[in-house]
């Protein structure tokens, strides 16, 4: 597109868009929310005056993305609650993909089977890693809270959670292979 020639920041955005989505998905906890944020960032970029000389464009790009997240967190606490409630009422997300309510019977059976796989994989984690994972990821405690409950350091909790994610990915992530942002 013509406008990227004189706008290195927009050009870099288009080049690194999928990495931005990967970063935002980790932070926001959902690919859909990450895509939303990436789109907002795009609109912000195309609506501003191009700045040809930027010393560190990649840092600026991520700074803008983080600021967008902060703005959203502040301004949209209400609608976030609404969205979450809406998701809980109307649909579920599996692997970041929204599944409509009342799925066809075969889909329901497939997701029930997948849920059993998820539960079994979590249940068979090594004890400490499994506990850290359940407290942090399933019950939503922060690393610090998990550390307090388990009587460990925050660093140790992070190590356990990371080990759990690695083991769970090795066990659950093989189907299809591609599962991340497009």
């Amino acid at each position: 597109m013509a406008q990227t020639d004189d706008d290195p920041l927009l050009a870099l955005y288009l080049e690194r868009r999928t990495n931005l989505v990967r970063f935002l998905a980790a932070r926001a906890g959902s690919l859909a929310a990450a895509e939303d944020l990436a789109q907002d960032l795009y609109l912000k970029l195309v609506s501003r005056d191009p700045t040809p000389d930027i010393s560190n464009p990649l840092a600026l790009l991520y700074k803008m993305a983080l600021n967008l997240m902060l703005d959203r967190a502040r301004g949209e606490a209400r609608s976030a609650a609404r969205d979450t409630a809406w998701r809980q009422v109307e649909r579920t997300e599996v692997g970041g993909v929204a599944i409509a309510d009342e799925p066809p019977a075969d889909e329901a059976a497939a997701s029930a089977q997948r849920l059993r796989q998820l539960v079994a994989a979590v249940a068979e984690l090594p004890p400490q890693a499994g506990r850290a994972f359940r407290l942090h990821k399933l019950d939503g405690l922060s690393h610090a809270e998990t550390a307090r409950v388990m009587g460990l350091s925050v660093k140790a909790v992070e190590k356990h959670v990371s080990a759990a994610l690695k083991a769970l990915t090795a066990r659950l992530g093989a189907r299809g292979g591609a599962g991340g942002p497009p």
Binding site: R22, A25, A26, G29, S30, L31, T92, E93, V94, G95, G96, L115, R116, L118, V119, V122, A123, R134, K137, L138, D139, G140, L165, K166, L168, T169, L172, G173, G177, A178, G179, G180, P181
Partner: peptide, 21 residues
């Protein structure tokens, strides 16, 4: 991508997994 996909899937299914436990 593999770790992210599995993590998001588990986070989204957190309530159901917790209930199963």
């Amino acid at each position: 991508d593999a770790v992210l996909a599995v993590t998001l899937e588990l986070q989204n299914a957190a309530a159901a997994i917790g209930k199963a436990f």
